[in-house]
């Protein structure tokens, strides 16, 4: 589904290289986790894949279902099935959560040549999904993420994901800032979405989330490259020993 090949990325404005030949492949139906020290380039990878400005790809590339991701506008990537749950979800005062979400859902449907949802259909759907994530109706009425607690923002990201039904979900530290119960809710939300033609790339610092969302593969990212790939046991190793040995092993 998602193929990243020898990706080199630098900042557009500065002479700073962040990704240094990153390669990675997530087949359909799988969950991959990325762990790695602060500043290793995890968020940068997620931004470059979803099309944020400010980065320059100097070498390599990335495809989603064989389509060149990097050639598309962010909204085209979304319509193609890519979704990023932000590490820091953005507040947008004055724009209602519902209006925003409905516009997004229908814009994607339109881009894919599907019928748009009526406001009745949309409401029914969003209410049901919000209930599963224990997001109350009042929160839906408020402006996007404004006045939401850290955990509420993260749950709102998962609500968006559930509504948009992307094929490739990237989650950037969705677990940070969540209490134990919220983590469970989010994991249940993600597990409910797991299917044979949907994949996940879960960026996290902690093994705990991976107890709830069982990964097929765990990658360790350091200094802009994948330095080690393994099974779920790799996450346990990081949890217990930190990155020290893995980093020195990789040289």
């Amino acid at each position: 589904m998602l193929k990243i090949n020898n990706l080199h990325v630098k900042l557009e404005e500065e002479d700073k290289q962040i990704l240094n030949g990153l390669s990675l492949e997530v087949p359909a139906g799988q969950v991959h986790a990325i762990m790695g020290p602060n500043g290793s380039g995890k968020s940068t990878l997620s931004y470059v894949l979803s099309g944020r400005d400010g980065y320059e790809v100097t070498e390599g590339g990335a495809t989603l279902d064989g389509r060149d991701l990097l050639a598309m506008e962010p909204e085209e990537r979304a319509a193609a099935g890519l979704f990023l749950a932000f590490q820091y979800p953005v507040e947008i005062p004055g724009v209602g959560n519902m209006t925003f979400l409905r516009t997004a859902v229908n814009a994607q449907r339109k881009a894919r040549g599907e019928e748009e949802l009526s406001s009745g259909e949309f409401l029914k759907l969003v209410r049901a999904k919000a209930k599963d994530l224990q997001i109350d109706a009042d929160m839906l009425k408020r402006p996007v993420n404004v006045g939401f607690s850290g955990g509420e923002k993260k749950r709102n990201e998962i609500l968006q994901m559930a509504m948009l039904e992307p094929r490739m979900c990237i989650m950037d530290e969705t677990d940070s800032g969540l209490d134990v119960d919220a983590m469970r809710l989010v994991a249940d939300g993600v597990n409910a979405l797991r299917s044979a033609d949907r994949s996940f790339l879960v960026i996290t610092h902690y093994q705990r989330l991976l107890n709830h969302i069982q990964p097929d593969v765990v990658h360790i990212l350091s200094n802009g490259r994948i330095i080690k790939t393994g099974g779920p046991e790799l996450a346990l190793q990081v949890e217990e020993e930190g990155y020290g040995d893995i980093l020195s092993e990789a040289g």
Binding site: G51, A79, I92
Partner: peptide, 23 residues
């Protein structure tokens, strides 16, 4: 970028942000 990453086309996203500014 946040709006566009959800599939909202750029023009529409700008309208949202302008309305947000005027709110």
């Amino acid at each position: 970028f946040y709006l566009r990453s959800r599939g909202v086309p750029k023009d529409r996203a700008i309208v949202f942000l302008v309305l947000s500014f005027l709110a």
